[in-house]
């Protein structure tokens, strides 16, 4: 593991009116790592994702993406689509597919920012556009095969079962060729078998060289999968470390289970 973090977040603060949802959050993710962000409900995990991906404008803080062997990039103030272009792809907690489009089209949309056919190219369908279109289809089909959805490529996305929709979201995010994949509760609502499949899928993605940051409530999944864990509560980072370190950390136990009360 290299010493240069791929994503570094410094002093990230997000305020909604008087409420401070994120409070001076610091966080580093290294290349090839599966990192997890955990915390009780309302701790600010999804807010963190939204700040990172440009949906919210953070009140303060620095977001830096430094891909290996490429110049780093500051993510503050970028629009969501620019963040995706820079190499951050995400999935959503409540699935946000394009339900009226086919499974294949959903993944092809992910290729949008890596392709460049314009209106006149589309109308004239010149060789360049046709080649690009064919590549888009090929890459998308390969990604569908990877997540095990190739045989339902022509089905409408809304007709897929829940677990398959989750996997489609991952395939769609991968189509944007990210450096870092952000997964917002990917195992939510999945049965044990589906969670099992998901675990191996995430591992495979990591083994191909991507870094992953996931938010998850399923502790078993987090503990077995993550190389490094950040724990947040009330918008503040209360602990970080490997799964063993976090598991026995008294602050974390307190945040999750509450404090023992001494009765007089």
């Amino acid at each position: 593991m290299s010493t240069e973090p791929i994503l570094s977040v410094r002093g990230l603060t997000m305020e909604f009116g008087g409420i401070r949802a994120l409070d001076k959050l610091d966080l580093q993710i290294y290349p090839g790592q599966i990192a997890a962000l955990i915390g009780p409900n309302g701790a600010g995990k999804t807010t963190f994702f939204n700040c990172l991906t440009g949906i919210y404008m953070p009140t303060a803080g620095e977001l830096h993406l430094s891909p290996p062997e490429q110049p780093g990039r500051r993510l503050n103030g970028l629009k969501p689509n620019q963040v995706t272009e820079a190499g951050l792809a995400r999935t959503f907690q409540n699935i946000r597919l394009f339900p009226g489009m086919t499974v294949l089209e959903n993944v092809m949309i992910g290729r949008h920012c890596r392709t460049k056919a314009k209106i006149f190219g589309a109308i004239l369908r010149n060789p360049g556009t046709r080649k690009e279109e064919k590549e888009t289809v090929d890459i998308s089909m390969a990604l569908l095969a990877k997540v095990g959805l190739a045989d339902v490529a022509d089905e409408f996305a809304r007709n897929l079962p829940y677990g398959a929709q989750r996997r489609l979201e991952i395939a769609r995010a991968l189509a944007t060729e990210p450096l870092l994949l952000l997964l917002d509760e990917p195992a939510a609502g999945m049965n044990p078998q589906e969670t099992q499949n998901l675990t191996s899928l995430i591992r495979n993605i990591r083994d191909e060289g991507l870094s992953i940051l996931l938010i998850e409530h399923d502790m078993k999944l987090v503990m077995s999968l993550s190389d490094y864990i950040f724990v947040v509560d009330y918008g503040r980072k209360i602990a970080e470390g490997t799964s063993e370190e976090v598991r026995i950390n008294p602050v974390v136990i307190k945040a999750y289970l509450g404090e023992e009360v001494e009765y007089a």
Binding site: T53, N81, T84, F98, G100, M101, I109, H112, C113
Partner: peptide, 17 residues
């Protein structure tokens, strides 16, 4: 088409709204 289906997901896929 994607814009019609879901604006936020559309942006997250790198489409300039």
């Amino acid at each position: 088409f994607a814009l019609r289906e879901d604006e936020i997901a559309c942006q997250a896929m790198g489409i300039d709204k």
